[in-house]
Design a protein around this nucleic acid. Structure first.
Lengths: 135, 135
DNA sequence: CCGTCAGTTCAACAATTATTGAACTCCTTG
DNA sequence: CAAGGAGTTCAATAATTGTTGAACTGACGG
């Protein structure tokens, strides 16, 4: 946690104009993201994460295309909404995200999920595919 | 919908005492409950319903013991909370409830779920069993 | 350094979920 | 009919989820 960032002179001006924010962002946007260990992946978190349609679509496409840049999903939803969904998927142990310069590559932890909950991801993917084809 | 129930004289008194409720319950508590048709069962609803631990426990026990009276789960949570969970399971198409006098028998729609999302319920049950044994 | 881009964080907001306890409805029995 | 039991409904509440847009951070190139 870096808490000694210098004052943002430019930001002070913008704050006055936008009239929105108090306090500074002091969050450390790390170069390595946290992922739960395989044995920490919880069934409830996985089921809940995958019950949401946007997140299920992301996972479906990732299983079809393999590791992809987050950018590949830009047309799916606004950036900040996607950030939220990526975080939910990652925290649930469903995806892995690695930082490559200004980009992020995201992939499904297929092996971990299969080891942890055999058949679960496959059945959800299959159901999603059937739905996508019928729709 | 029965809308011509007589005024509840006794209830009027209790309302004064309890100081809580306005208006009459006019909901028709039918003898037959609505269940979605097999092809109306939605993946999101199923995943979300089963992401909740109490509901998952109910379903797990039902698959082990077969159709059971709701009473069998009385120790799991308070009655009103159970009513809520039963309704969520039923609406999601996961369980079937039939009314037998003052009792309700509840069962899992195993065949429907298997037909609709092959392998899904099995993998969730298996994961829940593994968890129950480890816990 | 500045400007741009990729993606995140934040706060606000609306919607939804899960829980609670009292009142309710329906059924059964005496 | 009254009483009791099974289970539901209702309204209130707290917590959580999903969305939004502005501000932010870090990387990169000129």
């Amino acid at each position: 946690m870096r808490c000694f960032a210098p004052p943002f002179a430019k930001r002070e001006k913008q704050k006055e104009a936008a009239g929105g924010r108090n306090g500074a962002y002091m969050t450390d946007m790390a170069k390595e993201l946290h992922h739960p260990e395989r044995d920490q992946i919880e069934l409830s978190a996985v089921l809940e994460a995958l019950s949401e349609p946007t997140r299920r679509e992301i996972v479906l496409r990732l299983t079809e295309e393999g590791e992809s840049p987050c950018q590949a999903f830009d047309a799916t939803a606004p950036k900040s909404n996607l950030s939220y969904h990526y975080a939910r998927l990652r925290e649930a142990g469903i995806t892995r995200t690695r930082i490559v310069g200004p980009y992020r590559m995201i992939s499904v932890r297929v092996d971990d999920l299969a080891a942890r909950f055999p058949g679960l991801l496959d059945s959800i993917i299959a159901a999603s595919r059937a739905r996508a084809q019928a729709g």
